[in-house]
Structures are given as C-alpha cells and as structure tokens.
C-alpha cells in the first residue's frame, strides 16, 4: 500500500470513529461534517475527499457494525434449538441487544433509511443479505420439518418478520429497552407463526 493510500485509510478510520461517537452522543442530525472533522483531527476538505456525504459515513459505520453482528450470529445460529418461534426469537434478541448498545445511532440509521435519499454506500435497514439469510434459513428449516405449512411463501414471511422486528424500534422513543423489544417481538412472532402452522 502506498503512503497516500495509507493516509487515506487512516483518515477514513479516524472519521468513522469520530462520527460514530458524535452520532450516538449528539445525534445524527445535530452533528455537522465540521464537528466530525474537528473531533477526528482532520480538515473538512479531507472528510469530503473520503466520503460523499454524511449519510455515506453513517452507512459505512453501520456496515462495520453489521459485520460484527453477523460474526456474532454466525457463532450462535447453528446452536439454536427449539421451535421456529424460539429460534427466531433468540436470533432477533441478539439483534436488539447489539443495536440497543447504541440506540441513538441505530434510530438515526433507521430514520435515514426511510428518508428516501438514495446514497451510494448506504444499505437501508432490513436489506442487508447477511442479516436476512439467518431468518430465511430458520423459516426454510421449519418448512422442512413440517412445523409451518409446506406452501409458505418464505420470502414474504421473512420480509414480514423483518418488518415487525424493525418497526418495533418505534417503541424506543417511548423508553423501551432491548428486553422490552424482545418481549414484544416474542408475542408478535408467536402470533404470526400461529398463522403459518399446519392445521
């Protein structure tokens, strides 16, 4: 790696660290590029040569967090046991525990996902393949075991589970904790999967 490329990577890392802290403490909308540059100890200009926009910085932060979360899931998912509800519930509880370590950051990410601005380098919430796959796997497995009806539209069921999971974060503004979210999701999952069980 050339010196220039090394410098660029170093700037990138500094900007991401500074932005993650500021987004989580001050809020995403409240944080300016200038403030990020100042905290990172770099010039405003060099922030803009590394990232196209604030949303791209947020996208990059979330992508790194997804990688960490996906690694955690990879360790745990093969060991999940029990009913389809139990498995999905355990899986999604890991998401809630992880994201609620920095709730303000995650809410800013969801809000930005819904603000309709398409930015390169920004993956909207719920559409990351690494996070969708485990939900799909658990549902496919449940179909195979005959736990849910054979003609289940797994993609639709997966999207619906992910939608319920995501929209539960609306409760956070009212003071819900990670465990509140998990409890609510458990009830919703049980109700939803009742509709998929063979009768």
């Amino acid at each position: 790696m050339g010196v220039r490329e090394q410098q660029k990577q170093a700037t990138r890392a500094k900007v991401i660290d500074a932005a993650r802290d500021l987004f989580d403490s001050e809020g995403y909308e409240e944080t300016t590029i200038r403030a990020i540059a100042e905290k990172a100890g770099v010039s405003v200009g060099s922030v803009f040569t590394t990232f196209a926009s604030k949303a791209e910085i947020l996208g990059q932060i979330m992508a790194e967090r997804v990688a960490a979360l996906a690694a955690e899931l990879e360790r745990v998912v093969p060991h999940l046991r029990g009913s389809v509800v139990d498995r999905l519930s355990a899986l999604l509880a890991i998401h809630y525990d992880f994201q609620m370590r920095r709730p303000k950051l995650f809410l800013a990410y969801i809000a930005t996902s819904f603000s309709a601005r398409h930015e390169s380098g920004f993956t909207p919430v719920g559409s990351n393949p690494a996070l969708r796959a485990p939900v799909r796997d658990i549902l496919n497995d449940a179909v195979e075991r005959g736990e849910i009806v054979a003609n289940t539209d797994v993609e639709l069921a997966m999207d619906t589970v992910i939608a319920l999971h995501t929209f539960n974060y609306l409760q956070v503004a009212g003071g819900a904790t990670a465990s509140d979210l998990t409890q609510r999701m458990d009830r919703e999952l049980k109700q939803f999967c009742d509709g998929l069980s063979p009768r």
């Binding site: 909207p124 939803f192 009742d194 509709g195 998929l196």
Partner: peptide, 30 residues
Amino acid sequence: SGYRAAVYEGWTADDMIARLAEQLKIILAG
C-alpha cells in the same frame, strides 16, 4: 412496511394492497 417498497421499488398502491392481502391472510389465519 408497505411504504418501503413503494419508495424503494416504485410499487403502486395496488401492488402494496396485494402484498398486504397476502400478509393479512397469514396473520389472520392464526
């Protein structure tokens, strides 16, 4: 969650309604 598909995938109201109908079918079956 239907609005998401309208925004990102350009779905029409009829697309959104058709999808919601499928989802409600599952939810109400329970």
